[in-house]
Design a protein around this nucleic acid. Structure first.
Lengths: 322, 322
DNA sequence: TCGACCCCCGAAATCGATTTCAGATGCTCC
DNA sequence: GGAGCATCTGAAATCGATTTCGGGGGTCGA
C-alpha cells in the first residue's frame, strides 16, 4: 500500500505538501497537479487509522439497538445509515438484546475505537455514559429518553399515540379497550399505557383500568401470553391496544387461534406491523416514522460531532396519523 | 484519557511492560499486579486506533448487503454480528442498494480503514476486489458466488430449492406452475429458475417454459407486476414459484386484489415470508437458514483473518426443508 | 534600496500502541 | 566462584497521517 511518503517521493515534494493537497489548502497549482497525478498512479488511499490516531477521532459511529431483527430497529438503522454514509461516516451495528452488560461492552468499544459518536437505544435509565462523556463523544438516544444523564434525544409522542389509538377503537364501537404494554422499566411502555389510561377513564369510567392493563416484554410470545390472560379474565375486553409491533403479532396470533380477529375484536398497534400488505388484517396501526427517527438522530449527532454547542434538545416527532 | 504511558508512569514501569501485561506474556507476577492495579485506578482503555496503526490491521469487519430492510439480509446480518461480536470484532453495516458504485465506495472505505475482512453480497459478477486483494484483506461472499474473482463463498443450493418448491406445487395438484425470478444478472435468479425449469419440463412437457417465466427485480413492486403479467396472459398459470421473499409479498398482494389466493391458486416462495404468523397464507415456503448463512460466513472469514491458508471453498447450505 | 508582509513549502514533533534488541538479574551446575 | 543460560525489563524505532514552526522567495510601498 502506498503511503503519503511514497506519493511525496514520487511527486518530488514533502509529505506535508501531499497532506495539504488532500486537505485542500495553501498549495500552488503546479504541485497540486503533480501530487494528484502521483497519487493517482500509485493508487494512493489515505490511511484512516493513522489519520484517526493523529486527530484523536475517527469517522465511525456506533448504532446500538436492541435487535436489528425487529423491523422497527431495522428501519431506524436504515435511516441512520443513509445520513451517516452521505456524510462520509461508517456505521457500526450493535445488538444489545436489551442486556445492560452487552450495551456496556459496546460503549467501551466505542471509547476504545475513539468513535466520533454513538446513537443509542438505551436498555434502561441507568446506563453508564460517563466514559463517553469523559471523552466528549457525541451521543444521541433514540426511541427512549434518558433521564439520569442528559443527552440529545429523538423520540415520538408516546402519550399522544397511545391516546389516539385507544380513542379510535372506542369510536369504532368498542366498549372496553384493554392495553398490552411493555416492561415497567421502559419509559415508552409507561407513556403509551398512560395515553391509553386517559382514554380508558374517559370512555369506561366505571371500570378499573388496572384490570385491563397487561405488562409484557415487547416480544411476540409475551404479547401472545398477555392477550391470553386478558381473554381469560372474568370480564374480557372487546378490543385491545398493543404498545409495540412484535407483541401485536403475538396478540393477533392468540386472537386467531381462538377464532377471534379484527376488526370484530378491535385491535390497534403502536408501530407498523411488518409487511401488512400480506393481508388486510383489520388492525388499526399507529405508524411510526421509523426511518425519519433514524435520519433525525443521525443529523443531530453529526451536528454535535461538528462541534455544535447548542443546548441539549429532545426532538419529539409526531406519529404520522395523529 | 489515560494512555499506556500514564499507566506505566503510575505503576513505575515502562510502557513496554504495560503492553506486555495486556498481551499476556513474559511479565513477573509482581509487575502484573501493580500494572493491573494502576490501569484499573486510571480507567485505562487501550486505544484501538493506535494498535491498529501499529499492527496494520483493525478488529473491524465490513458487511455489505443490498438493503438491511429486506428481512433476509436482516437475519443474515444478525447471524454475522453474533459471531463477530463473540470474537471481539466490530461490524460495519453497509447498504449497497445493488448499486456497484456504492459497493465500490464501501470497499474503498474498507481498505482505507484497514479493516480485517469483508463479508459481501456482490452486486454483480464483475465487482472489483483488486484493492482488497492487494492488501490481502479477507473476503467472503454470501448468497451469491463470484466467478470473476475466486473467493470463499457461502450459498444455498438454489437449484435444488427451486426444484423442490416447484415439485411441491405440482404434487398439490397444480397443472401449470409459472416462475417469477430475479434479474438476469443475478446468479441466484438463474439458478432458482433453472430448478423450476427442470420440474416444469417434467410435469408440463407440452408447454413452453419461457412463456411462464418472468424476470423481475427482487422487489415487492416488481413481483406484483410480474404476477399481473402472468395472470393477464392468454393461458394463465394456476400456481407460481416466486424466487424471493419480497416479490412473493408483491405477488400475493396482486393475487388477493383479484380475488385469488393460496392455496387455491398455488404459491411457493424461496425464503421465509416475513412474519408469517400474521396469518396462515397457504403459501409454501422454502425456508432459508438465514442466520446460519451469516454465522457460517463470519466463521469462515474469521478463519481467514487468523491466517488459514486452506484452499478456497464454497459452502453450500441446504434449505431446511429439502 | 530596504523593510514589511504574504505565500509556499519542508523538517520534525506528535498521536498511542507494539516489538526488537540489548542489558540486567538471578539461577543452575560444574 | 564463575561460565552458561533463562527470565525479565526498558529504550527506542515503528506504523502513517497532521500540523506547527520557521525559512526562502516574491511583491509592494516608501
Amino acid at each position: 500500500m502506498a503511503t503519503i511518503h511514497d506519493v511525496a517521493a514520487r511527486a518530488g515534494v514533502s509529505a506535508a505538501t501531499v497532506s495539504r493537497v488532500f486537505a485542500g489548502s495553501g498549495v500552488s497549482q503546479d504541485k497540486v497537479r503533480v501530487v494528484l497525478a502521483a497519487a493517482e498512479e500509485m493508487g494512493y488511499t489515505p490511511n484512516r487509522t493513522a489519520r484517526a490516531l493523529r486527530l484523536q477521532t475517527s469517522t465511525v459511529i456506533a448504532l446500538i439497538v436492541v435487535d436489528i431483527e425487529n423491523p422497527f430497529f431495522t428501519s431506524l438503522a436504515r435511516g441512520v445509515e443513509d445520513v451517516t454514509r452521505a456524510a462520509g461516516y461508517s456505521l457500526v451495528l450493535c445488538n444489545s438484546d436489551d442486556d445492560p452488560v452487552r450495551e456496556g461492552s459496546y460503549l467501551d468499544v466505542a471509547v476504545s475505537e475513539r468513535m466520533a459518536g454513538v446513537i443509542l437505544v438505551p436498555t434502561s435509565d441507568r446506563c453508564d455514559l460517563s466514559r463517553l462523556a469523559d471523552r466528549r463523544t457525541a451521543i444521541v438516544t433514540v426511541d427512549r429518553a434518558l433521564h439520569s444523564h442528559p443527552v440529545d434525544a429523538v423520540v415520538v409522542d408516546n402519550v399522544a399515540g397511545g391516546r389516539s389509538a385507544t380513542a379510535r377503537l372506542y369510536e369504532r364501537g368498542a366498549s372496553r379497550v384493554a392495553c398490552i404494554t411493555g416492561p415497567r422499566d421502559a419509559d415508552t411502555a409507561e407513556l403509551r399505557s398512560a395515553g391509553w389510561r386517559q382514554e380508558f377513564r374517559r370512555f369506561s369510567p366505571t371500570a378499573d383500568p388496572d384490570a385491563y392493563l397487561e405488562h409484557a416484554d415487547y416480544r411476540v410470545d409475551g404479547g401472545r401470553a398477555a392477550m391470553a390472560r386478558l381473554l381469560d379474565a372474568a370480564e374480557p375486553p372487546d378490543a385491545v391496544f398493543v404498545a409495540n409491533n412484535l407483541m401485536a403479532v403475538g396478540a393477533l396470533a392468540e386472537l386467531r387461534s381462538r377464532g377471534l380477529a379484527p376488526p370484530s375484536f378491535g385491535m390497534a398497534a403502536y408501530g407498523d406491523l411488518p409487511y401488512m400488505p400480506l393481508g388486510p388484517s383489520g388492525v388499526d396501526v399507529i405508524p411510526m416514522p421509523t426511518r425519519l427517527i433514524g435520519a433525525t438522530a443521525a443529523t443531530v449527532l453529526l451536528e454535535r460531532i461538528k462541534g455544535s454547542a447548542d443546548p441539549l434538545r429532545t426532538v419529539v416527532l409526531r406519529n404520522e396519523s395523529d
